[in-house]
Simulated assay, not measured.
Amino acid sequence: MEYNIKEVSEILNVSREMIRYYEKKGMICPKRKEANNYRSYDVMDIFFLMEAIQYQGWNINIKNIRGLKEENYYAQIIDYLVNYQNKLIKDIDYKTLLLERICQVTERNKMGRYNLGNYWVKRIPERYVFNVVTGEGDNYEKICLPEEMSKILFSNVNIPFYDVYFEYKDGKEIWVISFEKRYFDKLNMLKKGDMLCIPEEYCLCTNVNLGAIGAFNENFYEDALDYMGKKGYCQEGTLSALLIGRGMEKDVFSRLIELHVPIEKNLEIG
């Protein structure tokens, strides 16, 4: 039984151009009809095309398929498949980590407005931070971000995993890019000298609106400190804030942060 290129295209759901490309690469060698020189394909041609298409689905490049069939077939196919298997495992591990991260950020944004003015104690995991810029209110100094560090922080693989924080010291905000250590480690990021490791902290938390740009709320932390005192906590470290989001809400620009006040871990409250 013989088939023309239109029939083969319909059987395999591939374009005629792709069939001709496979022929050009030497994967099939259809006969030519004497009457009109049209290509004529037999069942084995179709079988070879089926295999070539499936090999591509297994991440084997077209240019390697012909060599695969001509020498050491089983050793080569196993090598290709093992490599693809390892790539898939790596991809799955990354996508699993990314899914966890997106769930984390989604929940943070869902709850951001609901927790304005509410208080809770939370464990803040160990993290790596890199200082980016210092500001006072809405006035900022020059951004300091070396090219080498920028390539790490903003690579396509790493960029979904960072948080933006600022530490509040002496009336100034030190803005940093932060990676939880577990993400940092799983992404196999390289620690650079300018990165600082912030140990795990137990923090009193609340969500605060810093206000519109140009109208920075300088008293953003005072209510939290009052609450901390009433509850008998003692501040143990530097105030910091995790940026939740910036944007318009009901014609008003808001900047939501999650304020973190480090407290003593084992404090007994009377």
Score class of each variant (00 low, 15 high):
Asn156Thr: 10
Asn83Thr: 11
Asn86Phe: 04
Pro160Met: 01
Tyr183Leu: 02
Glu173Asp: 03
Leu116Asp: 03
Lys181Gln: 06
Asn61Trp: 02
Met149Thr: 06
Tyr73His: 14
Thr134Gln: 08
Thr106Ile: 05
Glu71Cys: 11
Trp175Gly: 02
Lys142Leu: 12
Tyr119Phe: 15
Lys186Asp: 07
Glu70Met: 14
Lys110Asn: 14
Ile65Ser: 03
Ile62Glu: 04
Met149Gly: 01
Tyr73Val: 14
Glu180Met: 12
Ile77Cys: 06
Gln104Gly: 04
Ala75Ser: 14
Asp79Ala: 12
Glu107Lys: 13
Tyr114His: 12
Phe166Ala: 01
Tyr168His: 12
Asn86Cys: 02
Trp175Pro: 02
Leu190Arg: 15
Leu145Val: 03
Leu97Glu: 02
Leu145Asp: 04
Asn61Lys: 15
Asn139Ala: 08
Tyr114Asn: 13
Arg123Thr: 15
Ile92Cys: 04
Pro125Leu: 09
Ser150Thr: 10
Tyr114Ala: 15
Lys122Thr: 14
Asn131Gly: 09
Lys181Asp: 02
Asn115Met: 11
Lys110Ser: 08
Asn118Gly: 03
Gly171Trp: 05
Trp175Val: 10
Glu167Phe: 14
Pro160Lys: 02
Thr106Val: 09
Asn59Cys: 09
Gly135Tyr: 00
Ile65Thr: 05
Lys122Ile: 07
Glu126Trp: 07
Asp79His: 11
